[in-house]
Amino acid sequence: MMTRRDLFRIGGKMLVLASVGATLEEITGAAPASEAYKMADHWWGMLIDIDKCIGCGNCVRACSKENNVPNGYFRTWVERYEVPEEGQPKVESPDGAMNGFPLPAPANVKSFFVPKLCNHCADSPCVQVCPVGATFLSPDGVVLVDQTYCLGCRYCVQACPYGCRFLNPETNTADKCTLCYHRITQGLTTACCENCPTGARQLVDFKNPKDPIHEFLRHNKVQVLKPYMATEPKVKYHDLDGAVR
């Protein structure tokens, strides 16, 4: 028991050292993630199952802790929709659901939760409008911001149809969900998926033939947010209601 524990602890440090990494490979039978990772082999996205979301806000808190998101800004958040038979829906997201939803929804109206995050659009308007190339779609399908190159002009914030971007007041640059790029490129799942208690969020690799997403898409109807924007989001929603914007 102790030896395995220790071995793994050392293994984490070995990732940095290529030569020692080879030893690790022999022991565990797997190449160290950061060495083996090939961008061309991945195309990341997410599957969100509305019928599994319980609005606990675990994803919001986890994202905030994992990525040091400043207070009052959100890389991910959860909305609660109350959709009456007629008229406008009522939507809430108290502090982005950082503490869940303290008050229950009324029982006589259809209601549900909608987790939101950057859609990592394949045809992203935020990337299109960045004047300097500080935000981009990575070869493995993640929309990222280069914090050392961003001007802070905020054109991308205006261009995002989903309200997923903000100006980080600490760095004075555009900020947004990275799909936990630092995690998924070393074989971990995102902080939000890791912490979702019901599996409402699933990290998806569309290029991995063994990913369960392919089986899921064959049998289920899915939708993306604002499909008419033609941004080709890679965050797919199962059981999404037509009222959701």
Binding site: I54, C56, N99, P104, A105, S111, F113
Partner: peptide
């Protein structure tokens, strides 16, 4: 956080 009743 998870198990408090909410019709949503």
């Amino acid at each position: 956080r998870c198990h408090e009743q909410d019709p949503a």
